[in-house]
Design a protein around this nucleic acid. Sequence first.
RNA 1: GGUCCCAUCGUCUAGCGGUUAGGACAUCGGCCUCUCACGCCGGUAACGCGGGUUCGAUUCCCGCUGGGAUCGCCA
Length: 488
Amino acid sequence: MVEGGAMTDRPRVRFAPSPTGYLHIGGVRTALFNWLWAKKTGGTFVLRIEDTDQERSTPENERIILDSMRWLGLDWAEGPDVGGPHGPYRQMERLGIYQEFVAELISKGHAYRCTCTKEELDAQREALKQNDPKAQFRYPGTCRERTAATPDRPFVIRFKAPGSGAVTYKDKVFGEVTTPLSTLQDAVLVRADGVPLYNFGAVVDDITMGITLVARGRDHMINTPPQILLYEALGRKVPEFAHLPMMLAPDGSKLSKRHGAVSVAEYKDKGISPAGLLNYLVRFGWSFGDEEIFSLPDLISKFDWERCGKGDGKFDMKKLSAVAFEHLKRKELTTDEAYLAGVRPFLEARGLSVDDDRLVRALPLFRERGQTWADAAELMDYLFRESPVMDEKASKKFLVAPKADLLDEVASLFAEAPDFAPAALESAFNAFIAGKGLELKDVAQPVRVALTGRTASPGLFDVAALVGRDTAVARLRAAAQIARASAG
RNA sequence: GGUCCCAUCGUCUAGCGGUUAGGACAUCGGCCUCUCACGCCGGUAACGCGGGUUCGAUUCCCGCUGGGAUCGCCA
């Protein structure tokens, strides 16, 4: 068996999701920090699937998680799909490995077989609660001295906890943490069916996969002491630990579906860019002076554990949108190609036939208007339709009888303009309205509604040029008809 | 309740003994303007409390309060 990271001194980190649901936004933050560290140090990012909760784990969830990771661009060097030298990378495929470690633990006297059933213990726990609601139930050690190698009843494997002393470790984020061992009990390591529990499975895998740094959410901090005990009982090198502060809901409670989107897929569907989402998440517990906006390469070079904070944070959708928007606005963060690829599915979802050339020309005008790709697609809707979807209120307000002739005249002006480029169009238009003693602001809205079907859009002449002369003229004439037909 | 952890504007945070406590989002004014955005200018807004240490505490120590995590044959 390959063990440890002997072949290299580069860090090996991992993200070990449980396929019991979609990829949670908090999980992404954990994955991101690990990934950044691997990229920065030239280390290895391992993806491991912890599917030992057979009740809730499904292959479908695993697929969703991997898809989300790919969408985010958090690639892994070793994992269930790509394999690797320390595989397999699904815990349920590693059952034999856990048995080897169980045997080692038992032979060293650090673990024992326990035939107490869950029902028996639940009853004891309940009885204790009855007598003293504040009392803390601890496994009484009934089977501690059992010697039979194969009891006549189903048995679980329990760790023989020291019962006294203390464990101290140096957390890369929280600093020195010391926990007394007196409260630790003989935890179950492996179920009767041979499936390991979290603390044991994770330790065995981290050992055999050569993980050198375990970075995970602060909710796992409580698991660290018993895990360290396991490393020590097995005589293996204890990895480094880095715990990340919690990401909470706006009201300070645990972030859940109740508070809105927690699944990565939902952000994808909202049109948030992966880089924008990651940028928002990295600022949760990590900062770099006053800098807020980072490209991925930027993050890789700047990230480090020393700049991680310890305080929990609350999720803020508004800020996420703002950060993601910043990424969409800046060409150096979202290239035209990336923007195109990002917004296109949202346009297509609206049933629009996307003209690539027009879309590229539209980009500079819409980048700063659509907070998300979904927004942008909505704003660009009229660019890819024969005629715009007419907003009733806008039409009623601006396409009125007194404007009908004007709209027709503008249509003619547009039809005859020698140059249909925005600047030329604008000067021709200005000359036209000046001749009528009007100002741009007097006629802009009717024309805008005619061209776009709405009261808000980029500059009129930009829009006209974008949809093209024929379409613009047709829309103006159609609007003139509407105006003429309106009551008035 | 036991154990562990945390504590700067509403939110994310900078600060690593001496600052008019900074930035960003949000919010409120204003500018720009063909609308909407973008952009720009400005305002409101924070060191939880009490003790120490120190010439001097947001910063170091202790206590309190508050918040979170966990106490499973979930992860």
